[in-house]
Design a binder for these strands. Structure first.
Length: 428
RNA sequence: GGAGAGAUGGCUGAGUGGUCGAAAGCGGUGGUCUUGAAAACCAUUGAGGGGCAACCCUCCCUGGGUUCGAAUCCCAGUCUCUCCGCCA
């Protein structure tokens, strides 16, 4: 949520910033409602001040034996007026919020304008592997190696689901273990949150109301959505401290969570993404930080650095990109992606997205900290970064580390969890 | 699933129609004392909003209602806790 005061005071600045996302906003309606609303507040406050004044006089007058019936009638009238004004005020407030809630975050100054095509590659690690044989794609590899079963996955979950088995399940779990170990070493606190969240959580994260259709909803007896399956544990973690006032010296708060992520991905099927590039469920470890406003920028660098170290540790060729404004999700002011090379697709695919939401989510979730110096409560800044999502790493590992004989070399950090250095083909 | 209890400031906890935004304690902050610290003592200490300001308004789980006036009374809902039953 954007600050209405900012929109009121720097209307052009906000409009220009949102233009970078490719959004044309006309704030005249919003500002008009805002003005009306403040007038209503003033009107109501005056009436209430009057009511309070007279109400406190009444018991005194009664005690001294005076007749107060005229005042009582007058106050009844005043109270009715107040009720009417409050009703109008409520209408204006919800009108205002309805608009405000749908506005996306303002892109940071150093975020390039435009859409995907303006994403900038900041740096690249390693080189594209060169094969002296005809390399297989990951769908062929997982089948030959018996790691992932698409047919049986679909028997259970339907289209868009797969299952891991044998060494595949172990490899998947090894990745998660590797991440957990690294984050724990870095002092992040491990959280296993609920996977079903109440709708308020989606609102705080910025997922709702606009992108409510992207997630799986759970309906109650009346057919209304009561919960939803989290599309990323960010949605859970941002709510960890909702409606709390944190102590400044306890910041930054650093967490990480492991959960599967559930997404509808309606209409996003692409033949090029068959395999495990895009499914309704995938595993992800997510890092999260609550920081003071002045430290969120360096926190973002820390998160990107951490995610990058994990990919480097696996020895995968990858790049880091700065997303253009239009490619950043609505809640985020700045996003850096880490993309890993998938040889068969001839493409880099996202394995981590690190973002700074500034106070956008904090406003929605009412998350503050007490500034020691001033004693005032301020909104915290929230940041999140995948660390990492497995569903693209798995194919990348198989494809980048495949051998001529069809086996795959296990990245060093995973070997202790796998109990093997190489995954060999199996009889199916 | 059945029965009961409860929800008040950072925390504990008083308050059952009118100087209650709210006692008291703890905690926090500042100070006195001390070589320093502790203890003790003194002072101070909720949040949000409107207004240039003086100042005013709102908030005692949420939403309605009664009343001139509600933390306090009534209705609905949410959540928490305890006990019983059932189940992983």
């Amino acid at each position: 949520m954007l600050d209405i005061n900012l929109i009121r005071q720097k209307t052009e600045y906000v409009a220009n910033a949102l233009r970078k996302r490719g959004i044309e906003t006309d704030f005249s309606d919003l500002l008009y409602i805002d003005k009306q609303r403040r007038e209503k507040i003033l009107q109501g406050d005056k009436l209430k001040a009057f009511r309070n004044k007279v109400s406190s006089e009444i018991p005194r007058l009664k005690k001294s034996g005076q007749d107060v019936s005229a005042k009582l009638t007058e106050m009844k009238n005043t109270s009715e007026q107040i009720k009417r004004v409050d009703e109008e005020l409520n209408k204006l407030t919800s009108k205002l919020n309805k608009i405000l809630v749908e506005l996306p975050n303002i892109p940071a100054d150093d975020v390039p304008p435009g859409g995907k095509e303006n994403n900038r590659v900041l740096r690249t690690y390693g080189d594209k592997p060169v094969f002296e044989f005809k390399p297989h794609n990951h769908v062929e590899l997982v089948t030959k190696l018996g790691l992932v079963d698409y047919t049986r996955g679909v028997k259970m979950g339907g289209n868009g689901f797969w299952l891991y088995k044998g060494k595949g399940a172990q490899l998947e779990w090894a990745l998660i273990n590797y991440f957990i170990e690294e984050h724990t070493k870095d002092g992040y606190e491990f959280v296993l949150p609920p996977h079903l969240l109440i709708n308020k959580c989606g609102y705080t994260a910025g997922q709702f109301p606009k992108f409510s259709d992207d997630v799986f909803h759970i309906e109650g007896e009346d057919g209304e959505s009561t919960h939803f399956l989290l599309p990323t544990s960010e949605t859970a973690l941002i709510n960890f401290h909702s409606n709390e006032v944190l102590k400044e010296d306890k910041l930054p708060k650093k967490y990480f969570a492991y959960t599967p992520c559930y997404r509808r991905e309606a209409g996003s099927y692409r033949a090029a993404e068959r395999g495990m590039i895009r499914g309704h469920q995938f595993n992800k470890v997510e890092m999260f930080q609550f920081t003071t406003p002045e430290t969120s920028e360096t926190a973002l660098e820390e998160l990107v650095g951490k995610a990058e170290r994990l990919v480097k540790g696996l020895g995968l060729h990858h790049q880091v990109s700065a997303l253009a404004a239009g490619d950043c999700s609505a809640s985020m002011s700045k996003t850096l992606d880490i993309e890993v090379w998938i040889p068969s697709m001839n493409e880099y695919k996202e394995v981590s997205s690190a973002s700074n939401a500034l106070d956008y989510q904090a406003r929605r979730g009412n998350i503050k900290f007490k500034r020691r110096k001033t004693g005032k409560n301020e909104f915290i800044h929230s940041l999140n970064a995948s660390g990492l999502a497995t569903s693209r790493l798995f194919p990348a590992i198989l494809e980048q580390f495949q051998q001529k004989n069809g086996s795959v070399v296990v990245p060093e950090p995973l070997r202790k969890y796998m109990g093997t250095d190489v995954i060999e083909p199996v009889e199916n």
